[in-house]
Simulated scan of single mutants.
Amino acid sequence: MLYDNLLREAEHLGIDTYEKPMSPRNKGLYGDNIIWINKMIPTRVEKACALGEELGHHHTSYGDILDQSDVCARKQELRARQWAYWRLVPLTEIVRAYKARVSGRHEIAEFIGVTEAFLQDSIDRYREKYGLFVVLDKQYTVYLDPLGVAELFPES
């Protein structure tokens, strides 16, 4: 379902998306408002993660960044991944999983619609940005290590 939503988002942005066989090391590529997703990726969940990152390139990258020995190219790659983390695994989705009584990384990843590795990478990035926890809307504390959510109750 997430993959289909991202495909619609790409179409809305005027981006053509194609699946084609690619080298196993390439999950996707973006250039000139075209996204190619590796047709050999076995699951739609993995394809959603790849498509999210390529949409991140649309929103954050410019020029040819294929040479990852270049510092600017690596920074743009990180920005695109970060965009995908924020878009596919917003902290509000972790709270929504908590409210649905979903527990464990595997189940949370399945609930959100991403791979467990993508969920972990997202959490790692959030931890780099916020530290061990972040408070959302003065209602929830999302703990990033270990992963968990605590509901805050208003003072009476």
Rank of each mutant, 00 (worst) to 15 (best):
Y3A: 01
D4Y: 03
N5F: 04
L6A: 09
L7E: 11
R8L: 10
R8D: 07
E11R: 14
H12P: 12
H12G: 14
H12F: 09
G14I: 00
D16R: 12
T17Y: 03
T17A: 12
T17K: 07
Y18D: 03
E19Y: 02
P21Q: 12
N26P: 02
N26V: 04
G28V: 07
L29S: 14
Y30V: 02
G31E: 03
G31R: 10
D32Q: 13
I35Y: 09
I37V: 08
N38H: 03
K39S: 09
K39P: 01
M40C: 10
I41D: 00
R44F: 08
R44V: 04
E46D: 04
E46T: 00
C49R: 15
C49S: 06
C49Y: 02
A50I: 12
L51Y: 08
L51S: 04
L51F: 00
E53G: 12
E53V: 04
E53L: 02
E54A: 15
G56N: 08
H57P: 10
H58P: 00
H59C: 04
S61Q: 07
G63N: 02
G63F: 01
D64K: 14
D64W: 11
I65F: 01
L66Y: 14
D70F: 05
V71N: 09
K75V: 14
Q76K: 09
E77T: 04
L78V: 09
L78C: 04
R81C: 11
R81D: 07
R81A: 06
R81E: 07
Q82W: 13
Y85D: 02
W86E: 09
L88D: 04
V89P: 02
V89H: 06
T92Y: 11
V95L: 15
V95Y: 15
R96T: 15
A97P: 05
A97F: 05
K99G: 09
R101M: 04
R101K: 11
R105N: 11
H106K: 15
H106A: 15
E107P: 05
E107R: 13
I108D: 05
A109I: 01
A109Y: 06
G113Q: 01
G113E: 01
G113W: 02
V114P: 01
V114Y: 03
T115Y: 01
E116H: 07
E116A: 05
F118N: 15
F118P: 08
D121H: 15
S122Y: 15
S122M: 07
S122F: 13
R125F: 14
Y126I: 02
R127W: 04
E128L: 01
E128R: 06
E128G: 05
K129V: 12
K129I: 07
K129P: 10
G131I: 08
G131A: 02
G131Q: 08
L132I: 12
L132H: 13
V135K: 15
L136D: 13
D137S: 14
K138M: 06
K138Q: 10
Y140R: 05
Y140E: 11
Y140G: 10
V142P: 03
Y143W: 13
Y143H: 08
L144G: 13
L147Q: 08
G148W: 06
F153L: 10
P154G: 00
E155P: 01
S156Q: 15
S156D: 12
